[in-house]
Design a protein around this nucleic acid. Structure first.
Lengths: 228, 228
DNA sequence: CAAGCTACTATACACACGAGTAGTCTGCTA
DNA sequence: TAGCAGACTACTCGTGTGTATAGTAGCTTG
């Protein structure tokens, strides 16, 4: 077995450097830059991992494992929000940014992360609804998936719109995001956005009877059927 | 000036092909693939645009212009939602996907698109609040920016999680996204998510007096609503 | 002490991309 | 018909990338 000793040598240093480089710059970062950050030669990647693809696979696995570990470690430390409760520490911020990069990349790894989050959010939301903390939905699965998509997407856009992420301020990125989004999120989740129920009711009437015209935003004008 | 005639020749065909390739595959798509899609040689790019960067700059400008045009053309055709009302037609879907790719890319062009959307959403929301359609916020600017970030991010994640986008089904992508997200969006915007106001109140109390402990998720225990 | 293995470096190869150049074809004009 | 300007193609070049190979230092082991 190889845990503590190897974690000090090149292999683990290379993997950790790759995780940080991938998180900071994206998965197009060159092997030479990763090796330079690890303080080793570039050829060492092949010696230890065989290829860049295998290096990334190991990074993905390591991040997923650390993410699960961090999650179960904090399961008894309830956060103030439903989603994105973990990026407090540097480790959590790094993992979160890496996962966001994976989703931004669009590959199968990002899908795995995303589906994993959706799955755990579904059971979480189901419990919250059962306990009366969250209002029920007409389609729980669709709502939860949508909420996760929104939360992840919001963080992803926030990350992508930054000029450049310094390699060390992962927690700062996440903390500032939470500082900016906490109030709007709580407002939206608590008080909603629309002043009345007309849009929702009109949509429900429309899906129930597609011949009736759909809702119209500028409700004072004449509503004409848009399309079917 | 060159409009109708040149639109049939290589330059405009190349630009349109580049827009579709960038939207479908991202901005890493090679010039050869773009030229092949346009049915011309790769060297033509340099002849007409000078470099790939300049080609993309022209694509960005063209998309921005078409986006504005499509927006003002549909200003008298109110949509059913606040955001993302345009991707009905093929043109609208293509432009939307291109803009999403720009934001995914993270460059200055994406920032321009994003800030433009935030700016127009702010005036839009302000009007909606004044007309009583939307509930007011404690920080209108932050809320609107957050809502745009969420909407864009949700579409972006939805796009990124797809295995591959066919080059012709841009409207299908957007329509399916809207079909999946319409109900959850209307539910969330109309009915909110939390069953009561405790989380929001606790947060407001916390920011008002940071010495008090922050909110706790398992908050069904004591409801000390210490309102400011 | 010597053999051997492991971690590691340095260098080189193959490939793809964008960039650049020269030459050909086409259509208009005088 | 002659000529010319622009549209367009085919080819070459330099660079950066991932990959592969040869070789070296250091520690382990019989």
């Amino acid at each position: 077995m190889s845990t503590a000793q190897d974690d000090l040598t090149g292999r683990a240093r290379l993997r950790d450097a790759a995780i940080e480089c991938f998180a900071a710059q994206g998965f197009d970062e060159s092997l030479r830059a990763i090796a330079a950050r690890a303080g080793v030669s570039a050829g060492l990647v092949r010696h230890h991992f065989g290829s860049k693809e295998m290096l990334r696979a190991e990074c993905d696995a390591a991040v997923l494992e650390r993410y699960r570990k961090l999650k179960v470690d904090s399961i008894n430390v309830p956060a103030t929000r439903l989603f994105a409760q973990l990026p407090s520490s540097r480790e959590g911020g790094l993992l979160m940014v890496y996962i966001l990069r994976s989703i931004q990349d669009g590959g199968p790894t990002g899908r795995t992360f995303f589906e994993s989050m959706v799955a755990e959010a579904i059971v979480f939301t189901k419990d919250a609804v059962a306990r009366g903390l969250v209002v029920p939905s007409r389609d729980e699965g669709a709502r939860t998936r949508f909420l996760v998509q929104q939360s992840i997407g919001s963080m992803l856009v926030n990350l992508a719109m930054r000029p450049d992420v310094r390699l060390d301020d992962f927690p700062a990125v996440m903390e500032q995001y939470m500082a900016d989004s906490m109030l709007p999120t709580l407002e939206l989740y608590t008080e909603g956005l629309f002043a009345d129920h007309s849009y929702l009711e009109q949509y429900l009437a429309y899906v129930d009877d597609p011949t009736s015209p759909p809702a119209d935003l500028a409700g004072e004008t004449s509503s004409y059927s848009r399309k079917q």
